[in-house]
Each structure stands twice: as C-alpha cells, then as structure tokens.
Design a protein around this nucleic acid. Structure first.
Lengths: 150, 150
DNA sequence: TTCATTGTAACTCCTATAGTTACATGAAAC
DNA sequence: GTTTCATGTAACTATAGGAGTTACAATGAA
C-alpha cells in the first residue's frame, strides 16, 4: 500500500487554517498541500463528523475550525480518521491453530502492541496548540537565520 | 498493501525446522504454513544470504538451520529481510519547504522513530532459543489442558 | 537416467490510499 | 432568479509491494 499520509495532511491543513482568517476552501488547501481538492474534502469530512471542523457550501464557503486548539490532541485526529492501521507488518493469521505459530504470534503481538501504545500515548500528549507553538518557534528561528544569512 | 507477514512467517518456519531432523523442503514448509513453496524460497533465500539457513538442491535437499539458535535475534531476522517498512502511516513529503509542514513532520517523526526504536529493541531482546522455550512451555500447558479435558 | 528439489523470471491478485473526472446540491452575490 | 463559487459524492484509475501462481532451467542424489 502507499503509506497513509492523512494524519500528516490534516495536521498540516489545520495549522494553515489556524493562521488564516475565515473559511478556507478545499481548493486553496489542496494547492497549499500539493494535492487534490476532493482528497481534502474526503479527509476533512472525517474531522467534521467529529466536530473538529465545519464546512459551508456556496460563495465564501469552505472549512472552519470548530474545536479548541488547546484541547484537540493528535490522538483525537487519529481516531477521527478511523484509527487507521499503524503497522505495515503483522501476523498472517491471528487465529492460528498451530502451537508454533501461536507462540510466534504472541511474541510479535506483544512487541507491536507495546510500540503502538507508545505511539498513541505520544499522540495523546500533543495538542494542536502545542504544534502551533512549535511552529511559531521554528518560524522565528527561520527568520533569524535568514536575517543572519543576508 | 496487504500486510507484510514475512517476519512472522520465517519465525514460524525456523521453529518448525528446529523440531525436525534433517532438511525440510520448501514444499513441506509451504504446506505447514499454508502458503506457496515459491514464497517460501523467496523469503528463506534472504535468510540464506545472511548465513542463517542453507539450502541444498536435488534429492533429499531442502532448508537447514545454520545459525546458533541462542544467538539469532528477531532483530537479525528483520534485518535479513531487508528491514521492511514498519509503519503503514507516514509523512507525505519528508523534504517539505513549508515551515508548517516541517513542524508537523518533525513531531510525527519523533513519535514514529521512538515507537520504532522500542519495537526493534524488543526484537533485539528475543532470540530464537527464547521463542523455542516459550513454545515448549505453551506446548506443555496445552497437553496438560487436553488431559484435564478428557 | 530419473526424479526431487532449489532458483528465478514473469506474471496476476490483493487492498487501501491517492488522484481524477463528473455532476448534483446548496448558498451567497448580483 | 440567475450566476457563481463551494461542498458532497459516486465512480472510476493509479500506485505500491507482498502474496500467490505458473513455468522452466539447473542441480544433485538414487
């Protein structure tokens, strides 16, 4: 499968929306994310179902943030996307009869479950506001560096 | 993509081979793993390149374990398979120019890198001998339970 | 010489996201 | 009320890489 980049994409979109006054259209978001407006609508639609954004049709319509940036975690976005499969690897057969296979699966599952738990904990610990702050810091650094370079 | 089950598969195969005297053919391994002999050859071939198994053609040929079960870790098998991609998710573009995207990518990468590190540490901590022991334990439990049930 | 077995090329199948086209629906602007 | 700008959504195609399959050459023991 091509890798699922939806989580990365919605984060990117939400941060741009936060920097922007008024609704942003799928078209504008698609251009700034280098993708297709229909893909944007599909993905943002999942966030709308969870009350994170809203959409308005017609003239001056588009996407608007509804949720509190300080309260929405990456984990919630991951859940809004339907909790996509995390790993590209896994057991062939989770209901194996073979005892050898059961042992192997149990060991691997332990490791995968623990890694997934860590990942989701990390996601739960970061809010959109944290990311926005990090962006501001990075932006300031970038400007300082540019000034030095010139 | 369908999930990559090669690691699970080679573990399954190696443990069966350990329980078996003499070489095992791709055909026999394929049957006991419910797959195809060519798939077995393809995957086992990667382990052969790392000296973990050897293969012999002709009559009474097949696959033989070469490595010391106490020294081969799951991590080494993962590496022998070419370190397959761990996550089904990821950034769209790792060389983003957009500062917003860079912030998002940096945060996500941190989380993914840490989760991957944990997973590979777990893999490095388990040898084939450990797995064989675990299988023996499970097997004993299973037999005891069967006796009680009868 | 026969036959079991690996080695390997060259396909098709699978599966979920991404991308695209097309068009219906809705809402503001004029 | 008509135009115009949006979203909503169906219905496709493209993509990637493992898995599955067929076919056949090469090899080695009986």
């Amino acid at each position: 499968m091509k890798r699922d980049s939806r989580l990365s994409n919605v984060l990117h979109a939400l941060l741009h929306m936060a920097e922007h006054d008024g609704p942003m259209s799928s078209d504008v978001l698609a251009k700034c994310m280098n993708t297709n407006p229909v893909v944007v609508r599909r993905t943002m639609g999942l966030l709308r179902e969870h009350g994170i954004v809203s959409s308005a049709r017609g003239h001056a319509g588009g996407w608007t943030i509804e949720a509190d940036f300080r309260k929405v975690t990456i984990r919630q976005l991951y859940e809004a996307l339907g909790e996509p499969v995390v790993f590209a690897m896994g057991n062939r057969n989770d209901e194996a009869q073979c005892l050898v296979e059961q042992s192997v699966n149990a060991m691997l599952d332990d490791a995968f479950v623990e890694a997934e738990r860590l990942l989701l904990e990390r996601f739960a610990a970061v809010t959109l506001a944290d990311l926005a702050t990090e962006f501001t810091r990075r932006h300031a650094t970038h400007k300082r560096k540019s000034k030095h370079a010139s």
